[in-house]
Structure formats: C-alpha cells, structure tokens
Design a protein around this nucleic acid. Structure first.
Lengths: 368, 368
DNA sequence: TTGTATGCGTTATCAA
DNA sequence: TTGATAACGCATACAA
C-alpha cells in the first residue's frame, strides 16, 4: 500500500503542461491549434455539424490536426460530469465475469454484447465489484460505481433489488440480462423459455407420445418456473394429462431419479421424459443415467428431451431434443435496449425466441 | 424520500436536466448537518481516520446522519475527476476480446486480470481493435483511445510497435502480456518458456533418452525461439547432441513430418520427439499422426512431449508430457505490474514460471 | 478542529 | 464565427 496520493503539484493556474503529462487536455490542443478551448470542444464533439454551429473549415482542420498529434482523448469522468455522455457501457455481474469454472461463464453473452456495443459506438467497462473485495468493491456502494458509464448491463440473478431500484429511480439507464420483474421499472431482456418449452412438448406429442413427465430441480428461479409453465401449456394444448403427476420435482435428482422409478413410469405408460436445464445439468444427467440403468432404449422405448442444452461436458454425446438459447443475440439485444434507454427513446423489455433442436433422442413411442 | 425542493440555494441559475438533479450532493448534506461541504467530504471519504485529520465525534455523527437521511451517494465521475485518476484499467486486444471461436480466446488470462484488478480496486475497460466505435477506431489513432484509462494492458502479438512506443514515451503506463523486447521501454509479463522447455528435455534425458528431436514451425515469434533455446539448453546440460540435426523446422508440419521420416529418425537412434506449441497445434498434431502412422508405440518405442499444452480439441486424448502455462497468473501479474506503474513505483518486467506436466506420453526408451 | 477557495477537464451559454 | 466564463460534484492545500 505505498500510495500516499502522489501529491500532485498544483501549479497555480497554468494551462501549460508541467513537464510530462500523460493525458493531453483540450486546453493543450487549443494552444497548439491557436484557438480557444471551447472551440476545440465544439469541433471534437462534432457538435458544430450536428447543430448549426458554424466553424470555419480552416479551424476545424487545425484542431483535428493538433488533437491527432497530441493523441488527445477526452476524459470520461469530466465528460460525464459535464452532463454529456461517455460512450461507455457498464457491465456488472454479481459473480466474477470470468469465473475459473467456465461452465458458469457469461462468455456467450459477452460475445454479443461486445459486438453490438462496437456497432453502437460504445466501449465496455467491466465493473469488477463482485468478485474479490477490492476498494469498496463489495457492500453498499458497489453498484454505485456504474454511474461512471452512460448506462449499465446487469448479469446474474442475484442483483440486490433495492440498489438496482435506486439506480433506476435516479434515472440511470439499466438493463438486466434475464427476465426480472421483481424490481420496479428495471428493463430486461430474456429468453422465451415458455414458448420454447411448449414447442418441445408439442414435438413430442406430435410424434405420438401420450404421457410425458418433466423432471425438474427444486429451484424457484423464473428460468425454472417458466419452463414448467411452458411444459404444462404444451401438454394442455395437445390434450394430454397435465396434472401434478406430470411434473417430478426433486432437490436431488441424482439419488431420486432412479432406474426403478423410471421403469415404473414406463410401465405406467410414460413414453417421454423431459428434463429442465440448469447450471449443473443435474436433472438431465440423472435422467439419462436412470434410463440407461433401467435398460430402456432411447429413442426406442422412451424418448428424451432437455429444456435447453445439455451441459458442456456432454457435448460429445448424441444431441438430445431440446432448444438452443441464443445467448449472443440476447447480449446484443440487451445492448440495443440499453442504447435506446440512454438515447431517451421509448423502450420495452423483450423476450428473445429460442430455436428448437430436433436432436436424436426422441422418436415415435413404441407401439405395444 | 425524494425531495423535490426545486428552490435549493444554488449559485448561479443554470437550467439543469431534471433527471440529473435528483441526487443529493455533498453541499446539501453539509447544509442539513450544519457544516461545510469540505467537512462532509472528509468524513464521508473516511480520510479523517486514515490520515491524521481530526474531526470531532459530534460532527462526524451529524454528517453521517444527514447523509443517511438524504440518501447520499457519491458521484463516481466527480470523484474520479477530482482525484485525477479513473481507477480504470484498459485491456486492448487486437482481435475481438470475445471471439466466437473460443479457441483463440484470451479468457484464461482475463480470469486472472479480472481478479487482480478487483483486488487492486480497478475496473476494466475493454477496447477492441476492430471496434467500430469512437472517432477513429481503426488506423492510426486506434491506440490512442486507451488513454482514457489510467493504464493499459495489451494482449496479442500484433501490437504495432511505433504506436505503443508513442504511448510509453508520453508516460502512459503500458504493460504487454507476453515478452516484448522489440519496443523500447514497454513493460511486459511473459511465461518462462526457456526454463520450461529445458525442464522437459531434462526429464526425457533422465528417463534415459540419448537422442531427442524438436519439431517446430517456421515462425520467429519470441515464444517459438525461446522454446528452441530452452530445448537446446536442456540437451547441452544433459550432454546430448545439440547440433542442427536436433531441430526440425518446417513451414508445413502436416506434409513434412511423415511416417517415413519419423521411422528414419527412429532407426537412426532417436527415441524421443518434442513438438512446440502454437496456436494451431500443427506441429504436435503432425508429430502424433506420423508416429501413429509409422506404427511406433508411444510411450513404448518412442516418447513424445509438447512444449506447452496440446490444442483444446485434443483435450480428451491421453495427456502428453509438457508444461502448463499459468495464464491466470500471468494476467494477475500483468495487472500488478501495471498498477505499480500507475502508482509510479519502480517496476520490472517479469517472467512467470510454467509448471512441468509429466503426462503419459513418455517413458524410458526401449533397450535394444 | 472546521471553513474557504480553488482546481480537475468538459460541456454549455452568452457576449464579442 | 470565436472566446470568456460559469457550472458539474468532489477533494484538498491553506487559512481561521
């Protein structure tokens, strides 16, 4: 901790650089160009052309030239303080953005975020608050730092509601990646799990399955309940039994989804099983293992599907029926929404459609 | 408690955007507490306790109380402007930071970068070489954008030297991830390929191998030549032949490293082969394929090693001897160095040690 | 022990 | 057309 503030010498009021300064200011550009600082601001922000501010071509050229030579870059803090915009978009995640365990990574989203941000002319500020305890990283003020940017994208489901609400109330543009209706006024972009889940059930029903069971974990996240809703919707739409027996909910799929149980289901007339997707993929893993252990052939005797994608480590296995979440598109969409919010345009939270995946884990039910 | 007391006592009378004036400032806290704004700043920043600034307990209490009632949150932009620093670290990569193809991703480095940045109290700004945003994104001024941060980390080997040199000359803190001695004065953090490569050879020599051949691509990047140096060092240290015959250099491993050639080497007494690691992993792939095609058993008749890690798509194959590059640590180390640079502390570019990996691709040579 | 005055780099408003 | 000048909200030497 050897800092001691680097007691920056304050040279009275000289606009001239005292020796070697790493960040040239507008004043210096002005001096080099032989104009006033205000003119530099005008030219550099392009506000002269946008509004009807007339600036001589000559001056323009000189200023741009000077800025180029000096390598001038506007100070984001100053810019923002003066009530202008930064061209900076914040990204705040409540776990590390780059976790060691890639399975929980936001990487796929970031691909889209980065691309769209570039298109919209924004750079990204990654707020590191959540991971390790930096300066005032954790704690009350953590979220406040994002105000440096023009707006901020939030990833992860554990965003503290009150702090977020405060930002929104203060008129700070905020977009949450993932549906979020608990926090008043927070805009969000989510995947349409309901429709996607319904589509999977529909596909199974059309293949001829009459009894289908959903295996889900004991989690009340929107992502989970949405899937269940879609699943039940699909059943009802197909005129299939959608009672409590259609959903098997367990806190520990690994021990509770047994071969015996699967066999019982099968003997009872169940010909298709659907597992929800979660971080760990526990439901899907358990289901696969149990079906295997029960000696049931898939997609011969039973058909399987997952409401999402299988976990990455099963990527070499045969592709199961299910749907793909367009994560990159979600990221891009979120940036677009945020950008509109910043521009003060009217906006609306949106759902992005997932794409159905036929896979090879399902077929028509065996005819008795 | 939103207090819309529009008639605040404010000097001047400029029309301020409504959304902006919704947050209380230190001045208002001061007024409510009956003290000066400066005192509020002192108390709220905890600078009174850190340094020996004496503030009466009474005042302290009043200020905190007032801040609490008003719901005061500091403006990061203002704070950073006044402090003459951003607490922003730039990360500049010459490809997209989040490429679609994860194989070329900087992810492993970023893990360490993010963590250490958080520890040091920095947030991250991600610049992309290809970004369409900003004034002059591509081309000459591209690198200048990074001046927005307090310092910048560069990833990838294609950083244009003159531009980097310019930044350094201007006193802008810069750290390059990867050894870089072509550009005057640029600090860097690199992996110690020389020692690591030497260790691999030593291990092979200790296992009893007397003739070892290195297969490398036709690339003069430091990462490549370092490996060769280490390899030759290792040979000499073990008293083994380290002439030109010990290194096979080819622009096209795939067609030049044939089964016939490998068999010839083997009949000539070569019992161990070492491939350098590159982006594509071409040398290692070719070597494996050729040995396989030659019908030589590994690790029975020949031993293999790679100077680094095999490409990600071979991750399910048996683990070859070689070494692991501690990418996360490299990232963290780079941030630490950059942070020191910014603080004006004396610094030095560093090499980080790689960790030896025994693997299963080598054993003692077959005794004739 | 606390208050005063000023600067940080921009943007924005006028007057010249 | 351009140039002073005043905020923006906070931090800090220096005076009281």
């Amino acid at each position: 901790m050897a800092k001691e503030g680097a007691g920056r010498a304050r040279p009275g009021r000289s606009p001239v650089p005292a020796g070697r300064r790493s960040r040239p200011r507008q004043a210096e550009v002005a001096q080099l160009a032989g104009v006033s600082q205000a003119t530099v601001s005008l030219v550099l922000s392009g506000r002269d052309e946008a509004t009807a501010r007339p600036i001589s071509e000559e001056t323009r050229r000189k200023v741009l030239q000077a800025a180029q030579t000096l390598g001038y870059v506007p100070d984001p803090a100053a810019r923002r303080l003066a009530a202008a915009r930064n061209n900076l978009l914040g990204v705040f995640s409540f776990t590390a953005t780059f976790p060691t365990d890639v399975r929980h990574s936001y990487y796929p989203f970031l691909v889209g975020v980065e691309q769209e941000a570039a298109v919209q002319g924004y750079d990204l500020v990654l707020f590191t608050g959540s991971s390790a305890g930096g300066a005032d990283a954790a704690g009350a003020g953590a979220l406040n730092r994002v105000r440096l940017a023009d707006g901020c994208l939030f990833l992860g489901r554990h965003a503290p509601s009150p702090e977020l609400a405060r930002l929104v109330r203060d008129g700070f543009p905020v977009v949450h990646l993932g549906r979020r209706e608990d926090t008043e006024g927070v805009a969000w972009v989510g995947a349409d799990y309901i429709s996607a889940s319904r589509d999977v059930v529909t596909a199974l029903a059309e293949a001829g399955h009459r009894r289908i069971v959903l295996v889900r974990e004991d989690d009340d996240a929107p992502a989970s309940t949405d899937r269940e809703h879609g699943f039940l919707d699909g059943l009802r739409a197909a005129g299939l039994p959608a009672g409590p027996a259609a959903v098997f909910r367990t806190a520990d799929p690994h021990t509770e989804v047994t071969a015996a149980r699967v066999r019982a289901w099968h003997e009872d007339g169940v010909t298709a099983f659907v597992a929800e997707e979660t971080d760990t993929g526990a439901a899907w893993r358990a289901l696969r293992a149990a079906v295997d252990a029960a000696g049931l052939r898939c997609p011969g005797e039973v058909s399987l599907a997952v409401l999402g994608s299988p976990p990455p480590d099963l990527v070499n296995e045969p592709v199961p029926m299910g749907f793909d979440i367009p994560r990159a598109r979600l990221g891009a969409e979120a940036v677009r929404l945020l950008s509109a919010l910043i521009a003060g345009e009217p906006t609306e939270s949106t759902l992005v459609a997932c794409t159905f995946r036929a896979g090879v884990s399902s077929g028509p039910p065996a005819t008795a």
